[in-house]
Design a protein around this nucleic acid. Structure first.
Lengths: 229, 229
DNA sequence: TGCAAAACTTGATCTAGATCAAGCTGGTTA
DNA sequence: TAACCAGCTTGATCTAGATCAAGTTTTGCA
Protein backbone atom coordinates (compact mmCIF):
# COMPACT_ATOMS: atom_id res chain seq x y z
CA UNK A 1 0.00 0.00 0.00
CA UNK A 2 2.94 2.36 0.45
CA UNK A 3 5.72 3.20 -1.94
CA UNK A 4 8.75 5.10 -0.72
CA UNK A 5 10.01 7.20 -3.61
CA UNK A 6 12.83 9.62 -4.20
CA UNK A 7 11.75 13.20 -4.60
CA UNK A 8 13.80 15.13 -7.13
CA UNK A 9 12.43 18.49 -6.09
CA UNK A 10 12.86 18.62 -2.36
CA UNK A 11 15.64 18.39 0.16
CA UNK A 12 13.92 15.40 1.74
CA UNK A 13 15.59 12.04 1.25
CA UNK A 14 12.38 10.31 0.31
CA UNK A 15 8.67 10.80 0.24
CA UNK A 16 6.30 8.05 1.19
CA UNK A 17 3.10 8.05 -0.78
CA UNK A 18 0.63 5.54 0.59
CA UNK A 19 -2.19 3.71 -1.02
CA UNK A 20 -1.33 3.52 -4.64
CA UNK A 21 0.43 6.50 -6.15
CA UNK A 22 3.78 5.05 -7.15
CA UNK A 23 6.85 6.87 -8.36
CA UNK A 24 6.30 6.47 -12.08
CA UNK A 25 2.80 7.84 -11.79
CA UNK A 26 3.83 10.80 -9.69
CA UNK A 27 6.32 11.55 -12.48
CA UNK A 28 3.45 11.93 -14.94
CA UNK A 29 2.25 14.89 -12.92
CA UNK A 30 3.08 18.48 -13.57
CA UNK A 31 6.44 19.53 -12.17
CA UNK A 32 4.74 22.18 -10.07
CA UNK A 33 2.83 19.39 -8.40
CA UNK A 34 6.00 18.20 -6.82
CA UNK A 35 7.26 21.46 -5.39
CA UNK A 36 7.16 21.27 -1.62
CA UNK A 37 5.46 24.01 0.37
CA UNK A 38 6.64 24.72 3.89
CA UNK A 39 4.09 25.52 6.57
CA UNK A 40 4.84 26.74 10.09
CA UNK A 41 2.88 25.72 13.16
CA UNK A 42 -0.67 27.13 12.95
CA UNK A 43 -0.37 28.00 9.23
CA UNK A 44 -3.52 27.21 7.27
CA UNK A 45 -3.14 24.88 4.28
CA UNK A 46 -6.71 25.49 3.14
CA UNK A 47 -10.04 26.75 4.47
CA UNK A 48 -13.67 25.84 3.77
CA UNK A 49 -15.16 27.06 0.47
CA UNK A 50 -11.72 27.90 -0.89
CA UNK A 51 -11.63 26.60 -4.49
CA UNK A 52 -9.47 23.52 -4.42
CA UNK A 53 -8.55 21.22 -7.27
CA UNK A 54 -5.55 19.63 -5.64
CA UNK A 55 -4.63 16.93 -3.22
CA UNK A 56 -1.75 17.44 -0.80
CA UNK A 57 0.87 14.89 0.18
CA UNK A 58 2.25 15.34 3.69
CA UNK A 59 6.01 14.93 3.22
CA UNK A 60 6.93 15.78 6.78
CA UNK A 61 5.27 17.13 9.89
CA UNK A 62 1.58 16.88 10.65
CA UNK A 63 -1.71 18.66 10.07
CA UNK A 64 -5.22 18.58 11.48
CA UNK A 65 -8.48 19.02 9.59
CA UNK A 66 -11.49 20.48 11.35
CA UNK A 67 -14.83 22.17 10.86
CA UNK A 68 -16.33 25.05 12.82
CA UNK A 69 -20.07 24.86 13.47
CA UNK A 70 -22.62 27.67 13.63
CA UNK A 71 -21.88 28.22 17.33
CA UNK A 72 -18.16 28.56 16.59
CA UNK A 73 -17.27 25.16 18.06
CA UNK A 74 -14.31 23.44 16.44
CA UNK A 75 -14.58 19.75 15.61
CA UNK A 76 -11.48 17.91 14.42
CA UNK A 77 -12.28 15.37 11.69
CA UNK A 78 -8.79 13.98 11.04
CA UNK A 79 -5.09 14.13 11.80
CA UNK A 80 -2.52 13.51 9.06
CA UNK A 81 1.13 12.55 9.42
CA UNK A 82 4.00 11.95 7.00
CA UNK A 83 2.88 9.91 4.00
CA UNK A 84 -0.79 10.84 4.11
CA UNK A 85 -2.59 12.32 1.15
CA UNK A 86 -5.27 14.83 2.03
CA UNK A 87 -8.05 16.83 0.43
CA UNK A 88 -9.93 13.90 -1.14
CA UNK A 89 -13.32 14.96 0.17
CA UNK A 90 -13.10 18.23 -1.78
CA UNK A 91 -12.86 16.58 -5.21
CA UNK A 92 -16.64 16.19 -5.46
CA UNK A 93 -17.37 19.91 -5.20
CA UNK A 94 -14.10 21.56 -6.19
CA UNK A 95 -13.80 23.41 -2.90
CA UNK A 96 -12.37 22.63 0.52
CA UNK A 97 -14.89 21.47 3.10
CA UNK A 98 -12.71 21.72 6.22
CA UNK A 99 -9.94 23.84 7.63
CA UNK A 100 -6.52 22.21 7.34
CA UNK A 101 -3.89 23.57 9.72
CA UNK A 102 -0.26 22.61 10.35
CA UNK A 103 0.31 21.34 13.90
CA UNK A 104 4.09 21.79 13.56
CA UNK A 105 6.53 22.86 10.85
CA UNK A 106 5.46 20.69 7.90
CA UNK A 107 6.18 20.18 4.23
CA UNK A 108 3.35 19.40 1.81
CA UNK A 109 3.39 18.73 -1.93
CA UNK A 110 0.43 19.97 -3.90
CA UNK A 111 -0.88 17.46 -6.46
CA UNK A 112 -2.93 19.37 -9.01
CA UNK A 113 -5.90 17.44 -10.31
CA UNK A 114 -6.85 19.53 -13.34
CA UNK A 115 -3.91 18.15 -15.31
CA UNK A 116 -4.92 14.62 -14.47
CA UNK A 117 -8.53 15.31 -15.37
CA UNK A 118 -7.69 16.99 -18.68
CA UNK A 119 -5.17 14.44 -19.88
CA UNK A 120 -6.11 11.04 -18.64
CA UNK A 121 -9.60 10.90 -17.32
CA UNK A 122 -12.65 9.57 -19.09
CA UNK A 123 -16.11 10.68 -18.06
CA UNK A 124 -16.70 7.51 -16.10
CA UNK A 125 -13.41 7.93 -14.26
CA UNK A 126 -14.14 11.47 -13.26
CA UNK A 127 -17.59 10.65 -12.05
CA UNK A 128 -16.48 7.58 -10.16
CA UNK A 129 -13.88 9.72 -8.43
CA UNK A 130 -16.51 12.29 -7.56
CA UNK A 131 -18.73 9.52 -6.28
CA UNK A 132 -16.05 8.24 -3.92
CA UNK A 133 -15.11 11.74 -2.86
CA UNK A 134 -18.75 12.42 -2.09
CA UNK A 135 -18.93 9.29 0.04
CA UNK A 136 -15.93 10.44 2.08
CA UNK A 137 -17.79 13.68 2.70
CA UNK A 138 -20.90 11.74 3.76
CA UNK A 139 -18.86 9.66 6.19
CA UNK A 140 -17.46 12.87 7.67
CA UNK A 141 -20.95 14.29 8.00
CA UNK A 142 -22.19 11.22 9.82
CA UNK A 143 -19.16 11.29 12.10
CA UNK A 144 -19.82 14.94 12.93
CA UNK A 145 -23.41 14.00 13.74
CA UNK A 146 -22.35 11.38 16.27
CA UNK A 147 -19.32 12.91 17.97
CA UNK A 148 -19.99 15.48 20.67
CA UNK A 149 -23.75 15.69 20.12
CA UNK A 150 -26.81 14.95 22.27
CA UNK A 151 -29.20 12.07 21.66
CA UNK A 152 -31.87 14.51 20.46
CA UNK A 153 -29.51 16.13 17.93
CA UNK A 154 -28.44 12.75 16.57
CA UNK A 155 -31.98 11.51 16.06
CA UNK A 156 -33.20 14.82 14.59
CA UNK A 157 -30.24 14.91 12.21
CA UNK A 158 -30.79 11.28 11.25
CA UNK A 159 -34.43 11.91 10.37
CA UNK A 160 -33.56 15.08 8.42
CA UNK A 161 -30.92 13.13 6.52
CA UNK A 162 -33.45 10.51 5.46
CA UNK A 163 -35.97 13.20 4.56
CA UNK A 164 -33.47 15.08 2.38
CA UNK A 165 -32.31 11.92 0.64
CA UNK A 166 -35.83 10.77 -0.15
CA UNK A 167 -36.87 14.21 -1.40
CA UNK A 168 -33.84 14.32 -3.70
CA UNK A 169 -34.98 11.02 -5.15
CA UNK A 170 -38.50 12.09 -5.86
CA UNK A 171 -40.28 10.84 -2.74
CA UNK A 172 -42.23 12.78 -0.16
CA UNK A 173 -40.13 14.86 2.16
CA UNK A 174 -42.51 14.78 5.09
CA UNK A 175 -44.06 11.32 5.06
CA UNK A 176 -42.11 8.12 4.56
CA UNK A 177 -41.57 4.61 5.81
CA UNK A 178 -38.67 3.96 8.17
CA UNK A 179 -37.21 0.70 6.85
CA UNK A 180 -35.01 0.09 9.90
CA UNK A 181 -35.87 -0.84 13.47
CA UNK A 182 -35.32 1.43 16.49
CA UNK A 183 -32.61 -1.00 17.54
CA UNK A 184 -30.79 -0.44 14.25
CA UNK A 185 -31.16 3.34 14.48
CA UNK A 186 -29.81 3.25 18.05
CA UNK A 187 -26.86 1.10 17.05
CA UNK A 188 -26.06 3.34 14.08
CA UNK A 189 -26.20 6.50 16.21
CA UNK A 190 -24.28 5.07 19.17
CA UNK A 191 -27.31 5.19 21.51
CA UNK A 192 -29.43 2.70 23.47
CA UNK A 193 -32.78 1.63 21.97
CA UNK A 194 -34.57 3.05 24.96
CA UNK A 195 -32.97 6.44 24.39
CA UNK A 196 -34.04 6.50 20.74
CA UNK A 197 -37.55 5.50 21.75
CA UNK A 198 -37.67 8.27 24.36
CA UNK A 199 -36.47 10.87 21.82
CA UNK A 200 -39.16 9.74 19.36
CA UNK A 201 -41.78 10.02 22.12
CA UNK A 202 -40.54 13.46 23.10
CA UNK A 203 -40.61 14.67 19.47
CA UNK A 204 -44.14 13.33 19.12
CA UNK A 205 -45.23 15.08 22.30
CA UNK A 206 -43.84 18.36 20.92
CA UNK A 207 -45.84 17.75 17.68
CA UNK A 208 -42.63 17.82 15.65
CA UNK A 209 -43.12 14.33 14.25
CA UNK A 210 -45.75 11.61 14.35
CA UNK A 211 -45.63 7.91 13.61
CA UNK A 212 -48.13 5.32 12.52
CA UNK A 213 -46.55 1.87 12.50
CA UNK A 214 -43.34 2.37 10.56
CA UNK A 215 -44.60 5.46 8.71
CA UNK A 216 -43.04 8.69 9.91
CA UNK A 217 -44.66 12.11 9.49
CA UNK A 218 -42.60 15.26 9.85
CA UNK A 219 -45.03 17.86 11.16
CA UNK A 220 -42.61 20.67 11.99
CA UNK A 221 -39.68 20.45 9.57
CA UNK A 222 -38.23 23.82 10.62
CA UNK A 223 -38.04 22.85 14.29
CA UNK A 224 -36.56 19.48 13.39
CA UNK A 225 -33.90 21.12 11.22
CA UNK A 226 -33.12 23.52 14.06
CA UNK A 227 -32.58 20.60 16.43
CA UNK A 228 -30.39 18.80 13.91
CA UNK A 229 -28.03 21.70 13.31
CA UNK B 1 -25.49 15.41 -8.15
CA UNK B 2 -28.26 13.03 -9.15
CA UNK B 3 -29.40 11.91 -12.55
CA UNK B 4 -32.67 10.04 -12.94
CA UNK B 5 -32.27 7.63 -15.83
CA UNK B 6 -34.38 5.10 -17.60
CA UNK B 7 -33.41 1.51 -17.00
CA UNK B 8 -33.90 -0.72 -20.04
CA UNK B 9 -33.44 -3.94 -18.11
CA UNK B 10 -35.79 -3.71 -15.19
CA UNK B 11 -39.47 -3.25 -14.57
CA UNK B 12 -38.72 -0.10 -12.62
CA UNK B 13 -39.77 3.15 -14.24
CA UNK B 14 -36.49 4.85 -13.53
CA UNK B 15 -33.33 4.44 -11.55
CA UNK B 16 -31.75 7.35 -9.78
CA UNK B 17 -27.99 7.24 -9.74
CA UNK B 18 -26.57 9.94 -7.53
CA UNK B 19 -23.26 11.64 -7.53
CA UNK B 20 -22.05 11.46 -11.05
CA UNK B 21 -22.83 8.30 -12.96
CA UNK B 22 -25.08 9.56 -15.73
CA UNK B 23 -27.12 7.56 -18.19
CA UNK B 24 -24.68 7.57 -21.08
CA UNK B 25 -21.89 6.34 -18.87
CA UNK B 26 -23.95 3.59 -17.35
CA UNK B 27 -24.61 2.50 -20.94
CA UNK B 28 -20.89 1.96 -21.46
CA UNK B 29 -21.02 -0.75 -18.85
CA UNK B 30 -21.49 -4.42 -19.50
CA UNK B 31 -25.10 -5.41 -20.01
CA UNK B 32 -24.84 -7.82 -17.09
CA UNK B 33 -24.04 -4.81 -14.93
CA UNK B 34 -27.54 -3.57 -15.41
CA UNK B 35 -29.44 -6.70 -14.55
CA UNK B 36 -31.33 -6.16 -11.34
CA UNK B 37 -31.01 -8.64 -8.51
CA UNK B 38 -33.90 -9.03 -6.10
CA UNK B 39 -33.18 -9.50 -2.41
CA UNK B 40 -35.71 -10.40 0.26
CA UNK B 41 -35.66 -9.03 3.78
CA UNK B 42 -32.58 -10.33 5.64
CA UNK B 43 -30.89 -11.56 2.44
CA UNK B 44 -27.16 -10.85 2.40
CA UNK B 45 -25.83 -8.83 -0.55
CA UNK B 46 -22.22 -9.46 0.46
CA UNK B 47 -20.16 -10.48 3.48
CA UNK B 48 -16.68 -9.51 4.75
CA UNK B 49 -13.71 -11.02 2.89
CA UNK B 50 -15.91 -12.08 0.00
CA UNK B 51 -14.04 -11.17 -3.22
CA UNK B 52 -15.82 -8.14 -4.62
CA UNK B 53 -15.01 -6.15 -7.72
CA UNK B 54 -18.38 -4.50 -8.11
CA UNK B 55 -20.37 -1.63 -6.83
CA UNK B 56 -24.11 -1.99 -6.28
CA UNK B 57 -26.78 0.58 -7.10
CA UNK B 58 -29.83 0.42 -4.85
CA UNK B 59 -32.74 0.66 -7.29
CA UNK B 60 -35.45 0.14 -4.72
CA UNK B 61 -35.73 -0.85 -1.09
CA UNK B 62 -33.01 -0.42 1.49
CA UNK B 63 -29.96 -2.14 2.95
CA UNK B 64 -27.75 -1.82 6.00
CA UNK B 65 -23.99 -2.34 6.19
CA UNK B 66 -22.44 -3.54 9.42
CA UNK B 67 -19.41 -5.15 10.98
CA UNK B 68 -19.26 -7.78 13.71
CA UNK B 69 -16.45 -7.42 16.22
CA UNK B 70 -14.45 -10.12 18.00
CA UNK B 71 -17.08 -10.35 20.76
CA UNK B 72 -19.82 -10.85 18.18
CA UNK B 73 -21.27 -7.38 18.61
CA UNK B 74 -22.85 -5.91 15.50
CA UNK B 75 -22.10 -2.29 14.58
CA UNK B 76 -24.02 -0.67 11.74
CA UNK B 77 -21.83 1.61 9.63
CA UNK B 78 -24.38 2.82 7.09
CA UNK B 79 -27.92 2.64 5.76
CA UNK B 80 -28.61 2.92 2.04
CA UNK B 81 -31.86 3.78 0.28
CA UNK B 82 -33.00 4.05 -3.35
CA UNK B 83 -30.39 5.83 -5.45
CA UNK B 84 -27.37 5.03 -3.31
CA UNK B 85 -24.32 3.33 -4.71
CA UNK B 86 -22.58 1.00 -2.28
CA UNK B 87 -19.42 -1.05 -1.94
CA UNK B 88 -16.93 1.76 -2.55
CA UNK B 89 -14.79 0.94 0.47
CA UNK B 90 -14.03 -2.52 -0.96
CA UNK B 91 -12.34 -1.21 -4.13
CA UNK B 92 -9.01 -0.74 -2.37
CA UNK B 93 -8.64 -4.40 -1.40
CA UNK B 94 -10.92 -6.21 -3.82
CA UNK B 95 -12.97 -7.75 -1.03
CA UNK B 96 -15.98 -6.69 1.01
CA UNK B 97 -15.20 -5.21 4.41
CA UNK B 98 -18.70 -5.23 5.89
CA UNK B 99 -21.85 -7.27 5.80
CA UNK B 100 -24.53 -5.80 3.57
CA UNK B 101 -28.06 -6.98 4.30
CA UNK B 102 -31.43 -6.07 2.80
CA UNK B 103 -33.79 -4.49 5.34
CA UNK B 104 -36.80 -5.11 3.11
CA UNK B 105 -37.45 -6.52 -0.38
CA UNK B 106 -34.93 -4.60 -2.50
CA UNK B 107 -33.55 -4.46 -6.02
CA UNK B 108 -29.87 -3.84 -6.62
CA UNK B 109 -27.88 -3.53 -9.83
CA UNK B 110 -24.37 -4.86 -9.79
CA UNK B 111 -21.84 -2.57 -11.50
CA UNK B 112 -18.80 -4.66 -12.36
CA UNK B 113 -15.54 -2.76 -12.07
CA UNK B 114 -13.18 -5.11 -13.91
CA UNK B 115 -14.60 -4.01 -17.26
CA UNK B 116 -14.10 -0.38 -16.37
CA UNK B 117 -10.58 -1.03 -15.14
CA UNK B 118 -9.56 -3.03 -18.20
CA UNK B 119 -11.00 -0.69 -20.80
CA UNK B 120 -10.84 2.84 -19.58
CA UNK B 121 -8.57 3.21 -16.63
CA UNK B 122 -5.02 4.43 -16.62
CA UNK B 123 -2.65 3.53 -13.80
CA UNK B 124 -3.13 6.89 -12.14
CA UNK B 125 -6.89 6.53 -12.30
CA UNK B 126 -6.88 3.12 -10.71
CA UNK B 127 -4.58 4.16 -7.95
CA UNK B 128 -6.44 7.38 -7.25
CA UNK B 129 -9.62 5.33 -6.96
CA UNK B 130 -7.91 2.94 -4.58
CA UNK B 131 -6.65 5.89 -2.58
CA UNK B 132 -10.14 7.30 -2.16
CA UNK B 133 -11.59 3.89 -1.42
CA UNK B 134 -8.95 3.38 1.22
CA UNK B 135 -9.84 6.70 2.81
CA UNK B 136 -13.50 5.68 3.03
CA UNK B 137 -12.34 2.57 4.88
CA UNK B 138 -10.23 4.69 7.24
CA UNK B 139 -13.17 6.95 7.98
CA UNK B 140 -15.25 3.86 8.79
CA UNK B 141 -12.53 2.57 11.09
CA UNK B 142 -12.37 5.85 12.96
CA UNK B 143 -16.14 5.92 13.25
CA UNK B 144 -16.14 2.39 14.66
CA UNK B 145 -13.52 3.51 17.17
CA UNK B 146 -15.68 6.34 18.47
CA UNK B 147 -19.20 4.88 18.43
CA UNK B 148 -20.18 2.61 21.30
CA UNK B 149 -16.69 2.45 22.89
CA UNK B 150 -15.25 3.47 26.26
CA UNK B 151 -12.82 6.34 26.72
CA UNK B 152 -10.00 3.86 27.39
CA UNK B 153 -10.69 1.94 24.16
CA UNK B 154 -10.77 5.13 22.12
CA UNK B 155 -7.46 6.41 23.48
CA UNK B 156 -5.75 3.01 23.21
CA UNK B 157 -6.98 2.61 19.64
CA UNK B 158 -5.89 6.14 18.77
CA UNK B 159 -2.35 5.51 20.04
CA UNK B 160 -2.14 2.15 18.25
CA UNK B 161 -3.30 3.84 15.05
CA UNK B 162 -0.52 6.41 15.25
CA UNK B 163 2.00 3.70 16.11
CA UNK B 164 1.00 1.55 13.13
CA UNK B 165 1.04 4.48 10.73
CA UNK B 166 4.48 5.65 11.85
CA UNK B 167 5.90 2.12 11.68
CA UNK B 168 4.58 1.73 8.14
CA UNK B 169 6.42 4.89 7.21
CA UNK B 170 9.77 3.84 8.62
CA UNK B 171 9.62 5.41 12.06
CA UNK B 172 9.82 3.81 15.47
CA UNK B 173 6.75 1.89 16.49
CA UNK B 174 7.20 2.33 20.22
CA UNK B 175 8.63 5.79 20.68
CA UNK B 176 7.37 8.89 18.91
CA UNK B 177 6.35 12.49 19.34
CA UNK B 178 2.68 13.32 19.71
CA UNK B 179 2.25 16.38 17.52
CA UNK B 180 -1.22 17.24 18.82
CA UNK B 181 -2.37 18.54 22.21
CA UNK B 182 -4.52 16.57 24.66
CA UNK B 183 -7.31 19.03 23.86
CA UNK B 184 -7.10 18.10 20.17
CA UNK B 185 -7.04 14.36 20.92
CA UNK B 186 -10.08 14.78 23.18
CA UNK B 187 -11.97 16.75 20.56
CA UNK B 188 -11.12 14.20 17.85
CA UNK B 189 -12.25 11.27 20.01
CA UNK B 190 -15.39 12.94 21.34
CA UNK B 191 -14.12 13.13 24.93
CA UNK B 192 -13.30 15.86 27.46
CA UNK B 193 -9.63 16.84 27.89
CA UNK B 194 -9.77 15.76 31.51
CA UNK B 195 -10.92 12.30 30.50
CA UNK B 196 -8.06 11.90 28.00
CA UNK B 197 -5.61 13.07 30.64
CA UNK B 198 -7.00 10.57 33.15
CA UNK B 199 -6.73 7.71 30.65
CA UNK B 200 -3.11 8.66 29.90
CA UNK B 201 -2.38 8.72 33.65
CA UNK B 202 -4.07 5.36 34.15
CA UNK B 203 -2.11 3.80 31.25
CA UNK B 204 1.12 5.18 32.73
CA UNK B 205 0.28 3.77 36.17
CA UNK B 206 -0.25 0.34 34.57
CA UNK B 207 3.19 0.67 32.85
CA UNK B 208 1.54 0.34 29.44
CA UNK B 209 2.83 3.68 28.19
CA UNK B 210 5.10 6.44 29.43
CA UNK B 211 5.49 10.06 28.38
CA UNK B 212 8.29 12.57 28.55
CA UNK B 213 7.10 15.96 27.36
CA UNK B 214 5.39 15.23 24.07
CA UNK B 215 7.33 11.98 23.48
CA UNK B 216 5.27 8.86 23.96
CA UNK B 217 6.75 5.46 24.79
CA UNK B 218 4.70 2.31 24.31
CA UNK B 219 5.97 -0.09 26.95
CA UNK B 220 3.41 -2.86 26.64
CA UNK B 221 2.21 -2.94 23.00
CA UNK B 222 0.33 -6.21 23.44
CA UNK B 223 -1.75 -4.90 26.32
CA UNK B 224 -2.42 -1.67 24.44
CA UNK B 225 -3.55 -3.58 21.37
CA UNK B 226 -5.80 -5.71 23.58
CA UNK B 227 -7.43 -2.57 24.99
CA UNK B 228 -7.89 -1.09 21.53
CA UNK B 229 -9.67 -4.09 20.04
C1' DT C 1 -57.32 -15.95 12.87
C1' DG C 2 -54.70 -16.69 16.55
C1' DC C 3 -50.52 -16.99 18.91
C1' DA C 4 -45.62 -16.55 19.56
C1' DA C 5 -41.74 -13.75 18.83
C1' DA C 6 -39.91 -9.44 17.82
C1' DA C 7 -40.18 -4.69 18.32
C1' DC C 8 -41.36 -0.83 20.96
C1' DT C 9 -42.39 1.99 25.12
C1' DT C 10 -42.13 3.73 29.79
C1' DG C 11 -40.34 3.91 34.43
C1' DA C 12 -36.58 3.36 38.01
C1' DT C 13 -31.92 3.25 38.95
C1' DC C 14 -27.05 3.49 37.99
C1' DT C 15 -22.65 5.09 36.01
C1' DA C 16 -19.10 6.69 32.68
C1' DG C 17 -17.63 10.53 31.60
C1' DA C 18 -18.77 15.73 31.52
C1' DT C 19 -18.25 19.81 33.99
C1' DC C 20 -16.39 22.73 37.47
C1' DA C 21 -12.48 24.03 40.21
C1' DA C 22 -7.81 24.57 41.35
C1' DG C 23 -3.12 23.76 41.20
C1' DC C 24 1.09 22.24 38.36
C1' DT C 25 4.62 22.27 34.58
C1' DG C 26 7.40 23.65 30.96
C1' DG C 27 8.28 26.51 27.11
C1' DT C 28 8.47 31.18 25.20
C1' DT C 29 9.55 36.03 25.43
C1' DA C 30 11.36 40.37 27.48
C1' DT D 1 16.02 34.73 34.86
C1' DA D 2 11.74 35.87 35.72
C1' DA D 3 7.22 35.62 34.87
C1' DC D 4 3.59 34.65 31.99
C1' DC D 5 0.55 31.51 29.69
C1' DA D 6 -0.91 27.50 27.23
C1' DG D 7 -1.24 22.98 28.15
C1' DC D 8 -1.72 19.36 31.46
C1' DT D 9 -3.22 16.99 35.72
C1' DT D 10 -6.05 15.74 39.68
C1' DG D 11 -10.05 16.01 42.64
C1' DA D 12 -15.14 16.82 43.54
C1' DT D 13 -19.57 16.92 41.81
C1' DC D 14 -23.18 16.46 38.41
C1' DT D 15 -25.86 14.55 34.55
C1' DA D 16 -27.11 12.50 30.02
C1' DG D 17 -27.86 8.52 28.72
C1' DA D 18 -26.99 3.40 29.81
C1' DT D 19 -28.88 -0.42 32.00
C1' DC D 20 -32.41 -3.07 34.20
C1' DA D 21 -37.21 -4.22 34.51
C1' DA D 22 -41.81 -4.79 33.08
C1' DG D 23 -45.34 -4.06 30.33
C1' DT D 24 -47.67 -3.10 25.42
C1' DT D 25 -47.96 -3.24 20.46
C1' DT D 26 -46.92 -5.07 16.05
C1' DT D 27 -45.59 -8.53 12.89
C1' DG D 28 -45.13 -12.79 10.80
C1' DC D 29 -46.40 -17.31 10.31
C1' DA D 30 -49.03 -21.84 10.96
Amino acid sequence: MRNPIQCNQCSMQSICVPAGLVSSEIDKLDKSSREPHVYSKRDMVYSPDQPLNSLFAVKSGSVKCYTIDSEGKQQITSFHLTGDIIGMESISNGAAVTYCEAMETSMLCEIKLNRLFAQNFTGVDKNLLRLLSHRIGQRNTHYLNVVNTTAEQRVASFIMGLSDHLYEHGFSRHEFKLPMTRTDIANYLGLAVETVSRVFSSLKQKDIIDTKQSILFIQAPAELKQMAS
